[in-house]
Amino acid sequence: MIPSIPHSRLFRTTYASYVVLFFLYLAAPLIVVGTFAFNDSLFPSLPWKGATLDWFFGSEQPKLGLFQDDPILKSILVSFFIASCTTVLSLLLATCNAFLFEREQFPGKNLLYILMLMPLVIPGVILGVSILVFSSSIANWFEMNFGWELDFLYPSTTLVILGQFAFISTICTLIVSARLRKFDLSLEEAALNLGATKWGAIWTITLPFLKPALIGAGIVSFLMSFENFNTTLMLVGSDAPLTIAMFDRLREGATPVLNAISLMLMVASSILAIISLLMDKKSPTT
């Protein structure tokens, strides 16, 4: 079943139609969400009542547009803050881990590697509650024994960041490690040979080589954090990030302003996706 092996016309047409149908299935919900952002109706459903940009710019209830909706705008800022912190932490840890697992030899390395992969197979909800329970236990203990009130250990933005960092760093580690594995060690030796120090060699040769993977991992972790729901739901404090705020609205009954937000998210994600794809193409190989 490859082009070099002849097949009947019927087979080829059926196969191609299946793939087209698959892409329709992929696209349908996204197209619908995007389209109804422009429907001049109070509900995101048919019939179509004409096009409007009110759900973006409208300034009056009930058609309060996205850019006038303060709670939503604030939740976007919260999400931005969380995603930035998570990304920085994850990239730092991922880079350390990549060097640890690709360069060092030590007893128990394989066990540690498997443990590092664990967050991939722990359901997000469980990861969230376990961190919630643990941090609350610590906070309670400190309050009982020392009278300290460690508020950040109760559901809060800090806890959301820690919870997301717990599993996003594993994904970043896999991306950065894969790139480091392709690195030819003789490049670092060549740098030493040309007079660089060990740190100088890593800084001038190895890290630039890892740059495409670091940017790619950064984009992935930013988006995963921005869009995370399951872990965040368990750890969120008073400042709701965007996904939680949208979820609450959805339960109250959706208005097309949610479609407007979704459309903006799609556009932003697509831009980031394109950047990361371009990054992938440009990365030089050894």
Partner: peptide, 30 residues
Amino acid sequence: ALCLIPFWVSELVRTYGWMILLRETGVVSS
């Protein structure tokens, strides 16, 4: 790359899309 696009969009948005499609007043029913 086309296959990857929905991954870049929040799960919430995707699910919301299915709600619009499938609900009683939704696109499929209409």
